[in-house]
């Protein structure tokens, strides 16, 4: 269970560019929940994810995971519980290393890295099996450098790496935004496949309101650092895109082209 209470994050305190990115945000998510977050630019979506993963420190409030307070836990230590897929396909994998090495790295997330071999024979067999199950053809490229893969392939790999060792929270920060529509669809399907009947919490930030409604069981709309609208379960499924758009204007949020064109 993820419990976020009164989370506040302010950038550039005391300067003319001071901005409250998160304003007393509170949120509770149970095991198996899949939350989609939507909002205009500067709403605080990415900031929220960065606070949960530990990349950014918080100014006020707490984040607790299964009763344990992780608000001030270092990013690399928090990675044991939190895995992420970034928007930029280049950020989630090490281009200079090959596929099996990347998977081996992900396999050790949350474990102490000692002087044992970086990748074992058994692991190679396991990875081959896992990759073939995804049906992307990556299992035949295992010894190839990741930099030779396409953006879609890299992002798929990043996704596989994120769930290789089951996390407690999976953060997806607009992870299909940089992909072409066809590849985005493939990656989204893969996402749903991995998260179906899963025991972990998934949080996905998206600009695509259709996806936001259809995928997952909870939805949250943010604006200027606040949660302005929430929906879950049946109520969420019954939402229409026009409802969301009118909600945007209600709260005075800016609708940009990306949101409109992607919905």
């Amino acid at each position: 269970m993820l419990k976020i209470e009164n989370l506040t994050k302010i950038f550039n305190v005391g300067e003319t560019t001071e901005k409250t990115a998160l304003n007393n945000v509170s949120l509770t998510l149970e095991e198996g929940d899949f939350l989609t977050i939507i909002g205009g630019n500067g709403a605080g979506k990415s900031t929220l994810l960065n606070c949960i993963s530990g990349v950014l420190s918080v100014d006020n409030g707490t984040i607790s995971l299964d009763g344990e307070d992780v608000t001030h836990l270092a990013e690399y230590k928090r990675a044991k519980y939190v895995s992420r897929v970034f928007q930029n396909p280049l950020d989630g994998t090490a281009g200079g290393m090959n596929i099996e090495e990347n998977l081996a790295l992900a396999f050790r997330r949350g474990k102490k890295r000692g002087l044992g071999w970086g990748i074992t024979k058994e692991e190679r067999v396991l990875f081959h099996k896992l990759l073939s199950e995804t049906g992307l053809g990556l299992e035949s490229l295992m010894a190839q450098k990741v930099s030779t893969l396409s953006g879609g392939q890299r992002q798929s790999l990043a996704l596989i790496m994120a769930v290789l060792v089951q996390p407690k929270i999976l953060l997806l920060d607009e992870h299909t935004a940089a992909l072409d529509p066809k590849t985005a669809k493939t990656v989204l399907e893969l996402t749903q496949k991995f998260t179906k009947d899963s025991k972990f919490i998934t949080i996905m930030v998206t600009h695509n309101m259709n996806d936001a409604i259809k995928i997952g069981n909870k939805l949250v709309m943010m604006n200027q650092g606040n949660v302005v609208f929430q929906a879950s379960g049946q109520e969420k499924q019954n939402l229409k895109v026009v409802d969301l758009i009118s909600k945007f204007s209600e709260v005075g949020a800016e609708l940009n082209d990306r949101i409109l064109l992607n919905s």
Binding site: S53, Y76, D91, T93, A94, M97, L105, G118
Partner: peptide
């Protein structure tokens, strides 16, 4: 050394420290 788990994490740090941290590596 660079074939060990720790050695691989050093290489990962050099290639992509953002990703390394996300994989739990103490960069």
């Amino acid at each position: 050394f660079f074939g060990t788990e720790f050695g691989c994490s050093v290489r990962a740090t050099g290639f992509n420290s953002t990703m390394a941290k996300a994989q739990g590596i103490n960069t």
